[in-house]
Amino acid sequence: MLTLDHQLLPINGIQLSLYLAGPEDGPPVWLLHGFPECWQSWRHQIEPLAASGYRVLIPEMRGYGRSSAPEDIEAYDLLTVCSDIQAAMAHFGQSQVCVVGHDWGAPVAWHLALLEPQRVKAVVGMAVPYGGRPRQPATTLMRQLYAERFHYILHFQTPGLAEAEMDADPARTLRMMMHNTSAAVPKDFFLQDKPANAGLFDGLEDPGTHPHWCSDAAFAVYVQTFATQGFRGALNWYRNFERNWQRTEALAERIIEQPALFLLGDLDPVGTLEAYTLRQMPSRVQYLEQHLLKACGHWIQNEQPERVNELLLAFLRRHYPAQAC
């Protein structure tokens, strides 16, 4: 049976909660979760990676679970979150790593590849592509296009607004977000046709149970992740689009030169939202392997874990083999 170690690392001015598995001398693979998730979102990948000889490191990202959740919104900008992982890598003396990210974890993974071209030997993104630094912050365009219609990212911009709705019942929040962005539900959660001042879940019904791809035990971990600190820290990631854009100016001309794998579900609404970025991606990622998983929604590594593991391990064998590191 796989044994997981847990550590609390005092790094980068915060406490980072981190789970570890696999041989201590194995090549490190970092698994970075997204929103509104937790380290448990990688439950199907941990054991296959560890069994293949990799040292698997799964943080609870800043603002989540037992990791620190600073008060300041600016404490959650993208480069600061990247520096959490960089500091943890330095803590373990890691000179070569692979970084894997899903949802918000994907931009962190892509930017770590840009920031650490020598240390990051391979990078994997799931659900959220990389198309280079945009010409303007994404929220600037959203405010132009969605002045009168609802957009979840704009809804998240006002501190306290989404928290009041989401913190009232974390289990309900997670059920709603999981169901309405998975393959089983055709409704497009991210592009709902309702007024700009509507609530996040207005017009949606609580399914009453979590999706089939999330076990009772796993769902309990998700709920516990937000039971104490709520969703404030996680939502603050969304409140830094302008700051992220400003702070990444020095990276604007860089491309990702490492071998890169990108996985997307064909029913993931992010694919629609990021259509332009997807078209730009081959020009910004030099050695790119892409796969579109059929009948798959946003929660790709949970909805189709066997296929994800097959593609991930094959990519690692080619570009970051355990026996050669």
Rank of each mutant, 00 (worst) to 15 (best):
A168T: 13
D266E: 03
L278R: 05
G65Q: 11
L154C: 11
H151T: 13
A198T: 08
L20N: 12
P36D: 02
V124N: 06
Q323N: 13
G26I: 15
G26L: 10
W30Y: 06
H111P: 14
M61W: 04
P36H: 02
L57N: 00
D202K: 05
C82T: 08
T248P: 01
L16D: 05
L18Y: 02
L31P: 03
P186S: 13
G271I: 09
T139I: 15
P186V: 10
V270E: 10
P259C: 09
A90L: 01
Q94S: 12
K294C: 12
Q192W: 09
V308N: 12
A217L: 14
Q40R: 15
L18H: 05
W213K: 04
M177I: 15
R307L: 10
I256T: 03
L9K: 02
W237S: 05
A218H: 10
I46L: 06
S17E: 03
G53F: 09
A227S: 15
Y76V: 04
R318F: 14
Q94P: 01
G131C: 10
G199W: 13
M166E: 10
Q246E: 05
V56N: 11
C214N: 04
A51K: 12
G63H: 09
S95L: 06
Y152R: 06
E253L: 03
D266R: 02
F35D: 12
I46F: 01
F315R: 05
G125K: 09
T173H: 01
A275M: 04
V124A: 03
A314F: 08
R284Y: 04
S283T: 13
I256H: 02
A87I: 07
Y287R: 15
Y130F: 11
G26V: 12
L316R: 08
A147W: 05
T140V: 14
T181S: 03
T139K: 07
A106M: 10
S68I: 10
G34K: 11
A324R: 15
Y238G: 08
A90S: 07
P134M: 10
Y276P: 08
T139R: 00
C296K: 07
P207G: 14
